[in-house]
Design a protein around this nucleic acid. Structure first.
Lengths: 212, 212
DNA sequence: CATTGGATGTTGACGTTGCACACATTGTGG
DNA sequence: CCACAATGTGTGCAACGTCAACATCCAATG
């Protein structure tokens, strides 16, 4: 079978299998091409089997989106925990920009890795589901936490929103492939350049870092 | 009939009527609730009439999206042409932030006015349509033009991408209603605060040459 | 052990959708 | 005046989401 062998009439853990199948199809075929029936087919069960585990199609999509946000949050914390930045100039005042760039890179990578999922997470309107909202809030709070170290709580709210918006906007732009096809390296340096152009030099430095 | 009286077998300008009906339904019911048949119904014609004017459903959606980008571009130029900014005098170095905030406000307003359309413009993957791409590029170039006055062409690319990403991210965030329900006034001041937090003390002052 | 009940998967059906085909109606150029 | 291309209609089909009824299995109870 596509995902795992079915022992008999009962499938050991259909819920997880459906989620897995849905994720594969989502990133392979796109959001709107994802049909509940196709998911069931891929999992090797009848078209109506999913209804024993999800109330309707939106419930499945919501579960996928929530999973995506949780995974994104993990990526974000990882990205900040051990930075992949080459120069390692972390000591001076550009830490804010560097942290932001790291989170932007992580988000964009995740978006490019899972385009269908990402589009579902941010694009689908039916995702007012509370499950999704809380997962999304958790991811956002990761950003807020990492940002809080650099600014007074006064401006923290604006910064948080701005950075989250910037990161998300960059992801969408790059996902759309509108900025030309880029190698992963070029993508990273583009992200760095954009982030630094916007908010470098804020507190400490006064000259934009113009590399390249 | 819903839109206009049909004189007889032939409808004077079905193409435009369909577009109009589709726009109404789009913002009323949401993107995925929009069916070609519903559009035809709303326009008072048979389910297959649209196929004489649009190759398929995606073609209709693409036309709508392109229309949206064109209208957005117009709003952007308007917003910068006669700024609605309150006490802010534009003579000092904060012009960049003020211009950006104006464009962000215009975009967010447009997004909140036409949520369905906006979601289609940025969310729908089937919009690789060349018609949409060129309209989107036109809108983006409006942003680039207004930004070019404040920075050297060197950093212009990064700034353009960053501002476009920021504006789009803010729109999505506010469209999603994730930041709490806001009055229009509160929305505007939130946008201003975010944009200034990101740009004011940073990029604006770092470019000493306010050329020309 | 046998029974039985709830959880899980299946089958059939209904209404809706996007789209392809053949057909009807029109006003317009020869 | 009339054929013809443009435009709208009708019918049909496969796929979809979802509901209702049925089948099958595991597990607890006697």
């Amino acid at each position: 079978m596509s995902t795992s062998d079915r022992r008999s009439y009962h499938h050991g853990d259909l819920r997880a299998a459906l989620q897995q199948s849905a994720l594969q199809l989502l990133d392979a075929e796109g959001v709107d091409a994802l049909s509940l029936r196709a998911v069931a087919r891929h999992a090797g069960v009848s078209p109506n089997a999913p209804y024993r585990h999800y109330r309707d199609k939106d419930a499945l999509l919501a579960a996928l989106a929530a999973h995506g946000f949780t995974e994104l949050a993990a990526r974000l914390t990882d990205a900040v925990a051990h930075p992949a930045a080459p120069g390692a100039d972390g000591a001076d005042g550009a830490e804010l920009a560097e942290t932001t760039a790291a989170m932007a890179r992580a988000t964009v990578h995740y978006a490019l890795e899972h385009p269908g999922l990402f589009h579902l997470m941010f694009g689908h309107p039916c995702i007012g589901h509370p499950e999704v909202v809380s997962a999304s809030d958790a991811a956002q709070s990761v950003v807020a936490t990492h940002l809080a170290a650099f600014v007074p709580p006064e401006a923290g709210e604006s910064l948080k929103i701005g950075v989250w918006a910037l990161v998300h906007g960059l992801s969408v732009l790059l996902l759309g492939g509108r900025l030309g096809a880029l190698t992963p390296d070029r993508t990273d340096s583009l992200i760095d350049a954009v982030v630094h152009t916007l908010l470098d030099t804020g507190a400490a430095r006064t000259t934009p870092r113009a590399d390249r």
